[in-house]
Design a protein around this nucleic acid. Structure first.
Length: 673
DNA sequence: ATGCCTATAAACATGG
DNA sequence: TCCATGTTTATAGGCA
């Protein structure tokens, strides 16, 4: 009976279990109190960062732990810097046998990653985790560093001006100053964005009433170009000498102008690279809340923050010693730096993407944010916030295919090796049945760039985050006549998703099963035979029933009413984007960004979950739809309901995946009301 | 603990 | 008989 049983050996196997699940479990950390204080941006950011780092690390740790052993057994490879030299002594407290594991991630260079990937020493999931971890760490560190540095620079400049009082240089310096200020702004923006992102993801709790966040003022949305600039600066740090450059080049990480300001030289002993840090802001206005005295970007909470290094130190001095000894300027450190840069870049790209999405969302919803507008690039964070509060319901992005992560076809950036390395293609090994839903929450939605997604799924053997039912419906709805024969449906699957070019027997069986099982799919006898159509009512009905009955529904509703939905939607969207890329790449269940997402999610806890998870329905699996539902359901604004929905659907070519919201709506209303 | 949902697998039916 | 198409049953895992 199995027609094609032979054709495709289901090699998938349970291998691709959701690493996510596991990860999640471990990834819980202390959750920082909600940062609502506007003024304490820095602190909040720092805390968040911390949290994030920890979570990411933990997650990675768990995974790595398991596989490390394997890895070692299979291939005791020590790349350039797979293992950090020190090793044992450190981490009195963090004693996880993971020393190697932990380090590995950080130390891995892009090349290394590739190697590993190819050798499959590490599972895609692991790699992703690593990547993610790195990203988180990097971003944070970078941001902080930049921030501080810039501040320092600014300060220095000012001091110079005052002390030197060189008339001849006045102009130049002023120009410099301006440049610095600009940079500072940029950094601040970046930071804020990051913050917002976190917020949006639920890490930070946004108080319903508190619509205005301090961030707003600053956040203007960074432009990729700006980011790149920043980036460049960072990268060039060493080569550049602040003194020489005028405007842009204010950041000189390597050797700032220690000489200029004697006061700042306290930590001269530290690695040259970070001297500036040590200098830090003397009179800086901002941050500095944490690391009170020995504030060093690489030293926090008594732990060495160097990627992959969690050495614990009693005092700052020993830390400095460690820093100079273990993290001196060598190949390894350099490689690590490089990786981090890449990671940061990736994050920046993601950020840009998110902004774009936000903009699109806002535009779509006609939300007049405080912001500028429509240009894709400059989205505003502010708008985010506002959105969450003001337009919670519609926040949901237009439905379309899930975001494309790193679209295989569209390389994010030249540097993004990490990404490229972890391309879907390289990971598909574990492609198997869709079974595991990593949490529906993760999968979500849909972003405007359907095309990209399409391409992504068309080329990457990544399991699409949608249920069979959703896909079938999509296929049918996409057809001109809204009806397809079984075979046509099959063809759609194979055409649209590389993933379905394998294991035909399995998924075809699933398709048939779904067609028969769900009432929403109606078989119509046709001249040519039989075709399948979609009964939207039924489709929509499905949800309601479930939901209505369950208490969860109530919860959902409640949350949805509040800002919850918006938040969740946004969160989901963002997650989707972030995750998906990685996630997708990593064979279906990999926790790349997911790990982060998980962590965040955990942090967020109920709020998000309730809101988003539409419980049973949408979640079916991985469908992104859920988010939409809630959004729609929300009674907040009439407009929201319909506007977003209709628009969404129609707007995108592939509203398909978005369809869910449709039924959601109905359901929600019916049941709920 | 329970119920619902989805994914899978597979048996079975039917018609060409 | 083979195959495509459908239907149905069973099982398992996730989730609320």
């Amino acid at each position: 009976m199995m027609q094609e049983s032979g054709t495709e050996a289901t090699s998938n196997g349970p291998a691709n279990q959701n690493g996510a699940a596991n990860v999640e479990g471990g990834a819980r950390d202390a959750r920082p109190r909600s940062v609502t204080t506007p003024s304490a941006l820095d602190i909040a950011a720092a805390d968040l960062i911390h949290l994030q780092q920890h979570q990411a690390l933990q997650v990675a740790r768990q995974i790595l732990l398991q596989q490390q052993q394997q890895q070692q057994q299979l291939q005791p490879q020590q790349g350039t810097g797979l293992k950090s030299p020190k090793g044992s002594e450190k981490q009195p407290s963090l004693q996880v046998p993971v020393s190697v594991a932990m380090m590995t991630p950080q130390v891995i260079t892009p090349q290394r990653m590739q190697q590993i990937l190819q050798q499959q020493v590490l599972s895609p999931q692991q790699l992703q985790v690593l990547l993610q971890q790195q990203q988180a760490l990097m971003l944070q560190q970078q941001l902080q560093e930049f921030y501080k540095k810039q501040q320092e620079q600014l300060h220095l400049q000012l001091l110079q001006q005052q002390h030197v009082g060189a008339q001849s240089k006045e102009q130049q310096q002023q120009a410099q100053r301006l440049a610095f200020q600009q940079q500072l702004m940029q950094v601040q923006q970046l930071q804020q964005q990051h913050l917002l992102n976190l917020q949006r993801q639920g890490l930070l709790t946004i108080q319903p009433g508190q619509t205005t966040l301090p961030l707003h003022s600053l956040t203007q949305g960074m432009i990729p170009a700006e980011l790149q600039q920043l980036w460049k600066e960072v990268t060039n740090v060493k080569e550049e000498n602040s003194s020489s450059n005028n405007s842009h080049r204010g950041l000189d990480l390597s050797s700032p102008q220690p000489p200029k300001n004697p006061l700042l030289n306290q930590h001269a002993s530290t690695n040259g690279q970070y001297m500036s840090h040590s200098l830090k802001r003397e009179g800086s206005t901002l941050d500095d809340h944490h690391h009170s005295h020995h504030s060093h970007p690489l030293y926090g909470h008594g732990v060495c923050k160097w990627p992959g290094c969690e050495a614990v130190f009693e005092d700052f001095q020993s830390f400095l010693k460690h820093l100079n000894n273990e993290h001196a300027l060598d190949d390894r450190s350099t490689a690590q730096c490089r990786v981090q840069m890449q990671v940061v870049q990736q994050l920046e790209l993601q950020l840009a993407k998110d902004k774009e999405r936000l903009q699109a969302m806002m535009t779509h919803l006609h939300v007049k944010s405080t912001e500028p507008k429509p240009t894709p690039q400059p989205l505003n964070l502010v708008s985010n916030v506002t959105l969450s509060k003001t337009a919670p319901p519609e926040a949901s992005p237009p439905l379309s295919l899930p975001q494309t992560p790193t679209t295989p076809t569209a390389p994010l950036t030249p540097l993004s090796q990490a990404y490229s390395v972890i391309t879907p293609n390289s990971l598909h090994h574990s492609v198997g049945p869709m079974r595991r839903r990593y949490s529906d929450k993760y999968n979500m939605p849909i972003s405007p760039d359907i095309v990209q997604n399409k391409e992504f799924y068309m080329n990457a053997e990544v399991r699409p985050p949608f249920t069979y039912a959703s896909l079938i419906r999509q296929a049918i709805l996409e057809s001109p006549e809204k009806q397809l024969t079984l075979n046509e449906i099959y063809n759609w699957f194979t055409r649209m998703f590389a993933y379905f070019r394998r294991n035909a027997a399995t998924w075809k069986n699933a398709v048939r099963h779904n067609l028969s099982l769900h009432k929403c799919f109606v078989r119509v006898e046709n001249v040519k035979g039989a075709v399948w159509t979609v009964d939207e009512l039924e489709f929509q009905k499905r949800r309601p029933q479930k939901i209505s009955g369950s208490p969860a529904l109530v919860k959902n509703i409640q949350t949805s009413l509040g800002y919850g939905p918006a938040l969740s939607a946004a969160f989901q969207a963002s997650m989707a984007e972030n995750n998906i890329p990685l996630y997708t790449t990593a064979s279906i269940g990999s926790p790349t960004l997911n790990s982060l997402a998980n962590a965040i999610r955990e942090e967020m806890n109920g709020a998000m979950d309730h809101g988003n998870s539409n419980g049973s329905d949408s979640s079916p699996g991985r469908s992104p739809l859920p988010a939409m539902h809630h959004i729609k359901e929300e009674p907040l604004d009439p407009e929201d309901h319909e506007g977003p929905l209709s628009l969404v659907m129609t707007a995108n070519h592939s509203p398909d995946f978005g369809h869910h919201r449709d039924y959601d709506d109905d359901q929600g209303h019916d049941d709920m009301l």
